[in-house]
Write a protein that binds this DNA or RNA. Structure first.
Lengths: 229, 229
DNA sequence: GCGAATTAGTATTAGAGTGCTAATAAAATC
DNA sequence: GATTTTATTAGCACTCTAATACTAATTCGC
């Protein structure tokens, strides 16, 4: 068994590091994800996530931003790291480290050539690793929905409360109760009303709101045991 | 501006990858963290986190387990990835990627030579990067407390409810309300009573319980807006 | 022994949060 | 103008939470 001196830096023969980005956008009633076509990706004959190696003079976050912008044409309004994974590659002596990111953008239309959007419930054949990264990204995204202003970054500066609820339902993949949604939104004082109203076909016009988060005092809550297991 | 073909794999000149592990353990009324001494770490004249490069034929998780075991002498009961960071090193042409892990173990005494435990409120001088990793590890740990059975892994097979509450208070760094703690614990049916009681000096003896998590159904709740900002 | 101190555990209350069913408001469509 | 559609608000039952106050069982000091 090695003693504590073995904790010192050991040199690996060769390491490659790539950044994979899962980009989501609302499309219709579900989320879509941007994949790149077989011809432009490393993976042969399969769609896969936009990915690239990290370059010199570039941080991981910068590399993820570059990959996202290359695939999308614009910088996404939300881009977060989800998880790193790594291990030996088939090629002997090479260790492959991948850092997965996830991002959100407004609409599932923008994409540079070689990329296409797929509904998350109808994905094409993709490598197992990519599928896993998508699943992790989705659950991380959904787990952070009430900590990060994710939904507000997908909406324009002013929006209706029905718009906001629709985005939340899309992101969470389930329906929400309208009255409860509005009540808790009102209680948190996260939005402020504008003078404008928007008429969208039939029915009463909806008032436009804007995101105006107050200074929050972090309130201490009890322990939740019902989330374990 | 690059076209989509630039998304293909680009080779970086040189990449090194290290795994840093922040190991926490209860000590008295607060958490302590295991640091390694200047002589056995790469950082000159400063305490720092146990760290090592990833080796051939080893995954990131395996490397983190090895680093933890080397520093601690045993495998910690909890070890999770917190975040990857990376960017150019001072040495030109070298990109340094680090993957931070955090772990928990039972007591702040076990340590191989070169390591020492410090209370998290009285850390010695450490590199800024290590300080940042510790902060991230702590907040990740606290954020995952009601999703992972963290506290139960720090306790022996049977324990009193006061023991359990003390561990939660230690991990969260704040006091909890006894009646509320027990009520929600009882509601989640996470523990089952044993026939044994333990007398610990003064006061009424406490009943011993064991961790017995039921099959959980994830219950859907509304959206929380009060955690934003 | 006997009461004070100490720790374990429970009731009871008041208040806040949630899910639901309506009821009301304002516009488009027929 | 009646009907339909959508937005918004009110009320109610139920649950969750936190705080105070209580009971229970033991040790300590005398």
């Amino acid at each position: 068994m090695p003693d504590s001196s073995s904790v010192a830096r050991a040199t690996t023969r060769q390491v490659t590091c790539s950044v994979d980005v899962a980009l989501f956008a609302p499309r219709g009633n579900e989320l879509a994800i941007l994949l790149v076509s077989p011809s432009s990706a490393r993976s042969r004959n399969r769609w896969s996530l936009p990915s690239d190696g990290i370059r010199n003079d570039e941080t991981l976050d910068a590399a993820a931003g570059r990959v996202a912008k290359d695939a999308l044409g614009i910088a996404p309004p939300l881009l977060e790291q989800s998880r790193a994974h790594g291990g030996p590659r088939r090629a002997a002596g090479v260790t492959q480290v991948g850092v997965a990111y996830f991002g959100l953008t407004h609409d599932a239309s923008a994409a540079r050539r070689g990329g296409a959007w797929f509904g998350i419930s109808s994905l094409p054949a993709i490598p197992a690793r990519a599928k896993e990264e998508i699943d992790v990204a989705l659950s991380t995204l959904r787990g952070h929905i009430d900590r990060l202003p994710v939904a507000f970054r997908l909406l324009p500066a002013t929006f209706t409360l029905s718009d906001l609820q629709a985005v939340y339902e899309l992101l969470l993949g389930r329906r929400l109760h309208k009255a409860s949604f509005r009540r808790s939104l009102h209680a948190a004082a996260l939005v402020e009303a504008t003078d404008e109203w928007r008429s969208e076909g039939r029915g009463r016009p909806a008032q436009l709101f804007r995101y105006a988060p107050p200074r929050r005092r972090r309130q201490r809550r009890g322990v939740r045991f019902d989330l374990l297991g």
